[in-house]
């Protein structure tokens, strides 16, 4: 886990919830294709992005994540037909609630990444890592050590 307060050489920890059918396969493809992306992501495989309870996101922040990424199939491509449409509604609201509660919205992101989009996964990982690195360690919502 990341060390709060070590500015030099600090790298963020980002929890990435990836759906089994698209985004996890996309991450696999990025790896198989030898695409370089930051090692800051901790991937958690979930059956569907719709499985990601907002509580998981809050818990990730509470327990030390500096950023959270939820990744699923493109709308219309869900393995379970409609799961990611629910995800989309849920996290539209969640993003605004986090912002309202004072958590920088840059720490949280939802991305649609299909199984064939290895480069997109690598790009998403680079983007969120760069953004969260610029924001610094999560001090908005994390347990005291």
């Amino acid at each position: 886990m990341s060390q709060v307060g070590t500015a030099a050489g600090w790298e963020p920890t980002i929890v990435a919830f990836c759906c089994n059918w698209c985004s996890y396969a996309g991450a696999d493809l990025a790896g198989i294709s030898r695409l370089a992306y930051p090692a800051s992501l901790r991937i958690i495989r979930v059956p569907c992005s719709g499985r990601v309870n907002p509580h998981f996101v809050l818990r990730a922040f509470q327990r030390g994540a500096d950023g959270v990424l939820v990744a699923g199939c493109h709308p219309g491509d869900c393995h379970y037909t409609t799961g990611n449409y629910f995800t989309r509604r849920r996290y539209l609201l969640m993003q605004r609630l986090l912002e309202y509660a004072g958590v920088n919205p840059g720490r949280f992101e939802v991305k649609w990444i299909s199984g064939s989009e290895g480069p997109k996964f690598a790009q998403a990982a680079r983007e969120i890592t760069a953004r969260v690195r610029a924001l610094g360690p999560n001090r908005e919502m994390r347990d005291e050590a």
Binding site: P54, H55, L58, R59, F61, Q62, L93, M94, L97, L98, A101, M141, R142, D143, E144
Partner: peptide, 25 residues
Amino acid sequence: NWLGRRTGLAQTQVFHLTRAFHVAG
């Protein structure tokens, strides 16, 4: 044990935001 009885600012934030989200809409 999702949250338990432990208190602390982060726990309380998580409690209230989770609860607010649970009743969202």
